[in-house]
């Protein structure tokens, strides 16, 4: 584990550097602990694959924890104190969210290349893809873009060398061992195998996204 500054007003706790459910659960648990029990000056706690980052206000932390030489030292100490108890922190109940998707030649632009990559038929690729339940490791890249995994090795085709300039909204895609749904039309390098009508990000909805880190997802045929 490493703890390092991300600039002068954020600190990252890095549990490791791999896609692992266990590390991810620790990152989410640490973020949720401080969401429920914020320290003075905390702006937000953001979990990622295997790390948690805390953004804070320098003047507010300095004012409240003046016994520390810097705000960084104060936040580091507060966060370190919580880590030994992480395994005892309640893991939030994981839900299973179903995402209906359509797989047609007009939506699954890269299904054939994934099939070629894996030496399988397009139907086999899809049935292998639909078999698994995926974990939502983190949300980032775009508003509401959930990084999910892990994808069966046989169909885990790496991202494209040259990204598409425009991936349609709702595209379901594979990027190596990860899968995700593009919440908005955007450039993107993952291999597109279908599309969903489900809104992955709605600025006027509450919550903004149907998924959050820690959820589980099953893709089904629409």
């Amino acid at each position: 584990m490493r703890i390092f500054p991300l600039g002068d007003n954020a600190i990252t706790v890095e549990f490791g550097n791999e896609v692992s459910l266990e590390l991810n659960q620790r990152a989410i648990a640490l973020a949720e602990h401080f969401r429920s029990n914020p320290f003075a000056g905390l702006i937000e706690a953001v979990p990622a694959y295997a790390s948690t980052t805390f953004f804070y206000s320098i003047p507010k932390v300095k004012e409240r924890y003046s016994e520390f030489p810097t705000a960084f030292d104060a936040v580091k100490s507060i966060v370190e104190d919580a880590i030994p108890y992480l395994s005892a922190l309640p893991v939030h109940e994981s839900r299973i969210v179903e995402i209906p998707m359509t797989i047609t030649s007009g939506t699954a632009f890269d299904l054939d290349v994934v099939a070629e990559f894996s030496g399988l038929t397009a139907d086999e690729v899809i049935s292998i893809f639909l078999e698994r339940i995926y974990n939502v490791f983190m949300i980032g890249f775009l508003p509401g873009f959930a990084y999910m995994g892990t994808v069966d090795e046989r169909i885990a085709m790496p991202r494209k060398k040259t990204p598409r300039t425009k991936v349609p909204k709702g595209s379901v895609a594979i990027g190596g061992c990860q899968t995700g749904v593009y919440p908005l039309g955007s450039p993107g390098g993952w291999n597109i195998i279908g599309r969903t009508e489900m809104e992955m990000f709605d600025p006027n909805a509450d919550p903004l996204c149907p998924l959050k880190a820690g959820d589980r997802v099953r893709f089904i045929r629409a």
């Binding site: 550097n17 953001v46 694959y49 980052t53």
Partner: peptide, 11 residues
């Protein structure tokens, strides 16, 4: 190679 982690203004 790094797994994705938080970035910020100024990184």
């Amino acid at each position: 190679e790094l797994v994705s982690a938080a970035t910020t203004f100024g990184t």
